[in-house]
Design a binder for these strands. Sequence first.
DNA 1: AGGGATGTTAGAGA
DNA 2: GTCTCTAACATCCC
Length: 276
Amino acid sequence: MPELPEVECFTRDLARWTAGRRLVGVELPDPRVLSGVSLADLEGLLGSAVGRCWRRAKWSVVELQPRGEEPARALLLHYRMTGKPVLEDGARGRKVRLRLRLARASEPELVVAFDDSRCLGEVHLEPVDELPAFFAARRLGPDCWPERHPGPWWTARLGATRRAVKVALLDQHRVAGVGNIGASEACFRARLDPRLPARDLDAAAWEALAEAVPAWVEATLAEELGAEIHFVTAGGSNPFLVYGREGEPCARCRGPIERFVQAHRSTFWCPACQGV
DNA sequence: AGGGATGTTAGAGA
DNA sequence: GTCTCTAACATCCC
């Protein structure tokens, strides 16, 4: 499910759940979720204090400070399509791949679980001081949020390619954090035809995108920080302007929202008011 | 039954 | 080397 706003929410959940706690147990119902780490590696960290939790692109980072002289480590969580961290309060998650048991003073233990129905998600373990290299190896572009970037920055990142602007927005090497929902939402907010080759956009279009991307992030965050996360596929209302709204009236001009496929992924847009 | 799903990446071809 | 696109990963839901 997650794009940048969801991963931001997930990471804040992790920060809240783990604050001031130590890792006191690890369970691994499905070892496929571990990437380059073994259960024994994780067990070697038992007793560590949880430190900072932060987000980079669509990754959550949970820092762990072992007792003694060992260097700080970081758990890196990537949720891919269906992963999410859940707090298990008695009831057990349905597709839990990894469980972390966390203790604080005399309080009851908490169980934070990595739930992932499709099991495409990944959990890595890296020394904290090697995180820059970890992200560099993935050639991850700069985050699209929270730092604001001016129009010319977007031109420089995305403006050289012939690919359609909506497809270019999905390229994490150029700009990190925009997913398939966000790309449609940002094009709608910027009134941009998602089919336009990125290199054909003018300065005004890049300025519009520079506004539209953070506007999408912040609108989605405002929705999702509230009660529960809105999963498009799991009931609840659809919080998006065009995504998943084929056939519905455009919120701006009442024209019908349409769906088509770009790079094997659904694009939703309003042909009447985007890029006429 | 078949198709589609919020992501990423290795590999192929131009 | 660079750019672009495809297939594959694994499972669930409509």
